[in-house]
Design a protein around this nucleic acid. Structure first.
Length: 155
DNA sequence: GCCAACGTTGGC
DNA sequence: GCCAACGTTGGC
């Protein structure tokens, strides 16, 4: 199957696109929502591409692009009592939470603000733009992915 | 900091 | 299994 597209949210105060650019790669730890977990465990595959989204930021919006470099695997932080993501309900035999590895691809010269995305007719129906939606891992259709690059050629 | 929307927990 | 209470997310 051809590569799929996703949007991953991060609070830049916690981990920003600049952090990813510096690190070059990371694993997307700390997702503790079952719907998002299912995407990480079952759906996201090595080779997929993701928008790096800044949430809870001075300027909320899409900040860059990254590439997925692994399929989902158990989130190591859930087993670490010292981690803020530690989950005593999880076990190595039956892990609850998953991560994928991602690699830096591109930082946009300017964040594409959520506000601007909302104005684009062709993006209607995109999960990100739905009222009250707060899923931190979301699928992005190929059509929406393309529209965003077309609408913001210089980003 | 506010608060609406949503997810999770736990008593029954 | 219901649902109120509580906690979290995230835009503003």
């Amino acid at each position: 199957m051809a590569g799929q597209y996703w949007l991953l949210k991060s609070e830049p105060g916690n981990y920003s696109v600049d952090d990813l650019k510096r690190d070059r790669s990371t694993y997307w730890e700390g997702v503790r929502n079952y719907q998002a977990r299912n995407f990480l465990r079952d759906s996201i595959k090595k080779g997929d591409e993701v928008f790096f989204y800044h949430s809870n930021a001075d300027l909320a919006g899409i900040a860059g692009v990254a590439k997925v470099t692994s399929d989902g695997y158990p989130d190591p932080s859930q087993f670490d009592p010292k981690s803020k993501y530690f989950d005593p309900k999880s076990s190595k035999e039956k892990p609850l939470w998953y991560v994928v590895d991602i690699q830096f691809s591109e930082k946009f010269p300017a964040v594409i603000p959520l506000e601007n995305l909302k104005k684009i007719k062709a993006l209607e129906g995109m999960p990100l733009l739905q009222r009250g939606q707060r899923l931190s891992v979301q699928p992005v259709t190929r059509a929406h992915w393309k529209v965003i690059f077309e609408e913001f050629p210089g980003r």
